[in-house]
């Protein structure tokens, strides 16, 4: 009996060791898709550069991706929100702040850096965590719009229930709450109109 116990113990150990080793392997393999997405990223960058020739397109592109992400959260769609988060992160990285004054540029770069991290986390987490980051992302993009402006009218909406009171941006006046989705779709009111 003692021998069996010992063997079981040792076998558990071997399992642990093999697991750790294989985990390391998996991680090195992960580098490949990363390179790949970097290539895509480069392609997208080139495309975007040839497409846009000014501030508006960039700020606008980012806002549009944000609204897509918001809609995915309104629909409780975790995997769509992941895709939209990753797409948003890519656009944020190509944001061109060069035409702004140096003060604005500093603030924009700060905003973009922060927002990129939130978008990346949204790209790889469960919906509860996505919503936590979406709150901080919304704050960043509200501050971004204050500098870049927007060609369309935007509504800042606010729900007092979520996390001590939380805002988000929307293209439409109607309330559809991205923090609760179907469980409390109508929580909130328009707090401010931008433009």
């Amino acid at each position: 009996m003692k021998k069996v116990k010992q063997t079981v113990r040792i076998m558990t150990l071997v399992a642990t060791i093999t697991l750790t080793m294989s985990c390391k392997d998996a991680e090195t393999k992960n580098d490949q898709p990363k390179n790949h997405s970097e290539m895509n990223h480069q392609k997208e960058k080139n495309q975007e550069m040839s497409m846009n020739n000014g501030q508006m397109t960039s700020g606008e592109t980012i806002l549009n991706k944000y609204f897509d992400l918001k809609d995915a959260l309104v629909n409780d769609n975790n995997s769509k929100a992941k895709d939209m988060g990753n797409a948003l992160a890519e656009s944020l990285k190509t944001f061109d702040a060069t035409i702004y004054s140096s003060n604005e540029k500093n603030e924009l770069n700060d905003i973009i850096q922060d927002a990129t991290e939130h978008a990346e986390h949204i790209g790889k987490s469960d919906i509860k965590h996505q919503r936590e980051h979406f709150k901080m992302l919304s704050k960043d993009l509200t501050d971004m719009v204050a500098i870049t402006g927007s060609s369309i009218k935007i509504y800042e909406q606010y729900c007092p229930m979520y996390d001590g009171g939380t805002a988000w941006l929307s293209r439409s006046e109607n309330i559809k709450n991205p923090y609760y989705g179907s469980s409390m779709l109508n929580c909130g009111k328009v707090q401010r109109e931008i433009n």
Binding site: T7, I10, L13, V14, I17
Partner: peptide
């Protein structure tokens, strides 16, 4: 098996 495991460890 026990020996192999020990050596691996």
């Amino acid at each position: 098996i026990a020996w192999i495991a020990l050596i691996a460890f």
